[in-house]
């Protein structure tokens, strides 16, 4: 079945974010449609990561509105965003280093677990059932990402590329509606990048997950994105399908510089 791009699910309107006197984001508006792969690109320090942090509630913009499925949300903490089905990965891997791959992935299921402390202490009732039921789900993610051989390994011992994959797994284990990926391919070699691209496309295709992607590899971005938004110095300078963005003079200027 061909993937159908649906309605707008997240609409960001006139977002401005300041840290003291520093303007991280200025008056940015764009939207994200259901099932699409939406990339955010821009030079270093353009505000891409800040944008993701605004979307999942780590930062609270001073101005602007975020409309999620037709409802405006004012201020939201990250765990509330997680409850709405937002999951993300980080630019610098943010795995739980002391835990095994399996446990890291199980943390992705935490919002679906309802057992009380006492039930968990005696591994009884809901605690037991949930643990087994969610293990099954997590195993599906493990199969999907082809990391069966490392499921019991502490993540601190894994090479970089695998850690990135496990981090994607942790986000996927939450069965998100919206997946925010912050440079999932940074520092990878060509093969690892190809694998990661395949996983991203498969997630999008098989589960219909909407994906917001920050990436510096233009080849990848132009290949897999449905639409691209370009930021520079906290301002939006371009927005559209990859071909449009590629030929936008402002974007070219931001990346290559202009003739004076």
């Amino acid at each position: 079945m061909a993937r159908q791009i649906g309605e707008v699910i997240v609409d960001l309107q006139n977002i401005s974010l300041r840290f003291g006197g520093v303007k991280a984001l200025t008056d940015i508006s764009f939207n994200i449609r259901e099932h699409e792969i939406r990339s955010i690109i821009g030079p270093n320090g353009a505000g891409k990561s800040s944008m993701l942090n605004v979307i999942n509630g780590v930062y609270h913009p001073q101005e602007g509105k975020i409309i999620y499925r037709g409802e405006e949300r004012r201020k939201m903490e990250p765990y509330e965003a997680a409850g709405q089905g937002f999951a993300r990965t980080f630019q610098n891997i943010a795995l739980f280093k002391g835990m095994s791959v399996l446990d890291n992935l199980m943390t992705g299921r935490n919002l679906k677990m309802k057992a009380t402390l006492v039930e968990q202490a005696f591994f009884w009732g809901r605690a037991r059932n949930e643990e087994l039921e969610h293990r099954k789900k997590v195993e599906e993610v493990i199969d999907f990402l082809e990391i069966q051989h490392i499921r019991k390994t502490p993540v601190g011992r894994l090479p970089y590329g695998l850690q990135k994959r496990v981090e994607l797994g942790r986000a996927l284990a939450a069965e998100p509606n919206l997946l925010l990926l912050d440079e999932p391919m940074a520092g990878m070699n060509v093969e690892e990048k190809q694998d990661m691209c395949r996983f991203i496309l498969d997630v999008n295709d098989q589960f219909g997950t909407t994906i917001v992607l920050i990436e510096h590899d233009m080849g990848v971005v132009m290949d897999i994105s449905d639409r691209v938004v370009v930021l520079d110095y906290g301002k939006k300078i371009g927005d559209g399908v990859p071909d449009e963005v590629k030929n936008n003079p402002e974007v070219i200027a931001a990346y290559l510089g202009t003739q004076h």
């Binding site: 999942n56 780590v58 903490e77 990250p78 765990y79 965003a81 997680a82 409850g83 999951a87 993300r88 980080f90 943010a94 795995l95 739980f96 280093k97 002391g98 835990m99 943390t107 992705g108 935490n110 919002l111 942790r170 986000a171 939450a174």
Partner: peptide, 10 residues
């Protein structure tokens, strides 16, 4: 291990 990530995951 990583409090920001913990909060983001819920």
């Amino acid at each position: 291990d990583m409090d920001v990530a913990a909060e983001v995951i819920g």
